[in-house]
Amino acid sequence: MMMKITKLHYPLADSFHVDGQTVVAMGFFDGFHKGHQEVLRRAKQEAEKTGATFAVLTYDHHPAVVYKKMSMHERRYLTLLDYKMALFEKFGVQQVFLVNYSYAFQSQTPAQFIDHFIQRFNAVAVVAGFDHTYGDKQTATMQKLPEYANGRFNVITVPPVESGGQKVSSTRIRIGLDSGDVDQVNQLLGRSFQTTGLIVHGEERGRLLGYPTANVEHSEYQWLPKIGIYVVTVDVCGQQYLGMASIGKNVTFSATHPMTVEINLLDFNQNIYGEVVKVNWLHYLRDEIKFETPEQLINQLGSDAKATRQYLMAHPEILA
């Protein structure tokens, strides 16, 4: 059965109704990291135990836009909406309640939130992380939710998942990406950090240098790793290929070049303009360097390709 996505706005329409009982996992789930997965695993377990529908209550954009001014960088997402929905479905979620997170929605009291949403979802249980809030951060806490629920549904609070002695969090992942530490990011995610983009024409300098690159155009709302050179695999039409990716400004050729994502796919010779590809970011190799001559750049690209192949030899599973 395909996952159902229902878009909701506060207040809910009188015609809105849910057939049957649900277990509702609450959260924004940006990143879909190991902590998020534990919340969903616990909700799925409860749904299977009670025979209820496994549902998720999540939001269409960062809740923070309601209560603070955010920079363009802060407004980016680790997991764009379509990808997050695909991850939910792969996990076994049956129903997503996708709420427009507005000032009016946030301004509900906990009692109103329960009456207007949780009760109308026919929830037999609500599951969320220990630090999840569903309105005012002082009152709408998981610690207080059992009191507000008053026996109408079970409340399951999931403790933090830790890695390296610290809580796994979206904030840690953003910091990791901003420092280029995709190895740690992938450990926190339990999978490779993945982005999706469109292959477009670039300046084609790489072809002249003997290292043709695929230019990947990403959404401006996609959080990317910091400028530098990375080992990646790229899913092209369902097939995985090894490559080295450059996030940078081609500083060897121009001081004013815009930032681009260019990927040299090793042992690959196909025209893929117009394809939408998935990029799995695996390992940081080096910073972007301004070379004095094209020959120096070519030599460095040779070293990068060698390091990329060595990474594959040490991690053959990335192309399995």
Rank of each mutant, 00 (worst) to 15 (best):
A52F: 01
C237L: 10
N150V: 01
P159Q: 08
A214F: 00
F193H: 12
W281R: 13
Q310V: 06
P63Y: 04
F117P: 05
E89S: 10
Y311V: 02
F88G: 00
A47W: 13
S15P: 14
S170A: 14
F268V: 04
T79S: 15
E48P: 00
Q194P: 00
A123I: 07
K306I: 14
S246E: 08
F97W: 08
P160W: 02
I272E: 02
Q138L: 14
Q37V: 00
G243C: 06
P294W: 00
E48G: 05
N154E: 08
Q300I: 03
K69A: 14
T293S: 15
K44T: 05
G165V: 03
A255W: 11
M259T: 15
H218R: 08
R207T: 13
D115W: 00
F193V: 07
M3S: 09
I227A: 13
V66R: 01
A13S: 13
G180D: 03
D183E: 14
T157L: 04
Y148T: 06
T141V: 06
V93L: 04
T213C: 06
K278N: 14
F32R: 00
V96Q: 04
V56R: 00
I247D: 05
L98I: 12
F88I: 00
M1T: 13
G210C: 02
L319V: 08
K278R: 14
Q21R: 15
V168I: 15
I175K: 15
T157S: 13
S192C: 11
K137S: 13
D30Q: 04
Y211I: 01
G202P: 05
G274Y: 01
G197I: 07
V96N: 06
Y221R: 14
A13D: 12
I175F: 13
L224M: 15
G202D: 00
F153C: 03
G180Y: 07
C237T: 12
G51A: 06
A214L: 01
